[in-house]
């Protein structure tokens, strides 16, 4: 029974939602609304499921005086200070986010926001460092990725188009150089011919491409995003969506049960 009842609950709730999609009339529409309302109430509690282990783990560290315990103590203290502050603020102003709530205007604005946003700002440094070390045009595909990324980066910013000529110039030179060294080391003249032709093509399209990028920057950006890259995104997401549907049905029909462990 410990497994059967949850599986029945999953089946009934999942099927109710799917049936309501195809038959939105009563009683299914009403059942859907009620189930949704229950889901709204219950799913909130999933937000705090990790709370127990977070506090338990850190309390344990403080008790054992394990390495780094002062940080665990800081964590626990800040949990309780924040909680008490929030409760006091709620009692005094009626709601935690009332416009006069000190919790919102001081804790949220000057503690929570800077901490969270700076955590994510660190990523800018790491991505810059990675750009320097890791992004190499090792293959044709990697080159496509880097060139698209660079064009997008430069068309997304004002005046970015002004450096387009030298940037693409260096990229073209590097490509031609690499292709020519392939041409040089090719077994026969005919085997190397494609490399030579590709090099000539790159030189030939360089100026027109730079000119278009320079004069119609926003249109090019719009075209890359809405046309050139869009098909692949659609393909990828269709794959993910079909996988998601299959997974959802497996859960509803009780084939996938890992959530019960």
């Amino acid at each position: 029974m410990k497994r059967e009842i949850p599986m029945i609950i999953t089946f009934v709730s999942g099927m109710a939602i799917i049936i309501a999609l195809f038959v939105p009339h009563p009683p299914f529409g009403r059942v859907e609304e009620t189930f949704n309302n229950w889901y709204i109430i219950i799913s909130g509690f999933t937000m705090i499921l990790g709370l127990n282990s977070l506090l338990g783990h850190n309390l344990d560290k403080v008790k054992r005086k394990a390495e780094g315990w002062p940080y665990s103590l800081t964590l626990i203290l800040s949990f309780f200070i924040t909680l008490i502050w929030g409760i006091v603020s709620t009692i005094r102003t009626g709601h935690i986010f009332a416009s006069t709530s000190t919790f919102r205007n001081y804790y949220y604005t000057y503690v929570f926001v800077p901490l969270q946003s700076t955590m994510f700002a660190l990523l800018a440094f790491f991505i810059a460092s990675a750009a320097y070390r890791a992004f190499r045009a090792r293959t044709v595909n990697a080159t496509l990725l880097l060139v698209t990324a660079s064009i997008i980066m430069l068309t997304q910013v004002p005046k970015g188009e002004t450096v387009m000529a030298p940037v693409l110039g260096v990229a073209a030179l590097l490509a031609v150089w690499k292709l020519m060294s392939e041409f040089e080391s090719a077994a026969s003249w005919t085997a190397g011919l494609p490399y030579l032709l590709l090099s000539i093509a790159i030189v030939a399209v360089y100026l027109p491409i730079v000119e278009v990028l320079r004069t119609q920057t926003t249109a090019v950006n719009d075209w890359i995003m809405n046309v050139l890259q869009m098909g692949a995104k659609r393909g990828i997401w269709l794959g993910i969506a079909l996988g998601g549907i299959a997974m959802g049905l497996r859960i509803i029909f009780g084939i996938e049960k890992s959530y019960l462990t």
């Binding site: 810059a128 320097y132 992004f135 880097l146 990324a149 980066m153 430069l154 910013v157 940037v167 260096v170």
Partner: peptide, 11 residues
């Protein structure tokens, strides 16, 4: 952006 593109090129 120009700096990062320059990083990619130098690299």
């Amino acid at each position: 952006h120009v700096l990062i593109v320059a990083f990619i090129i130098i690299g």
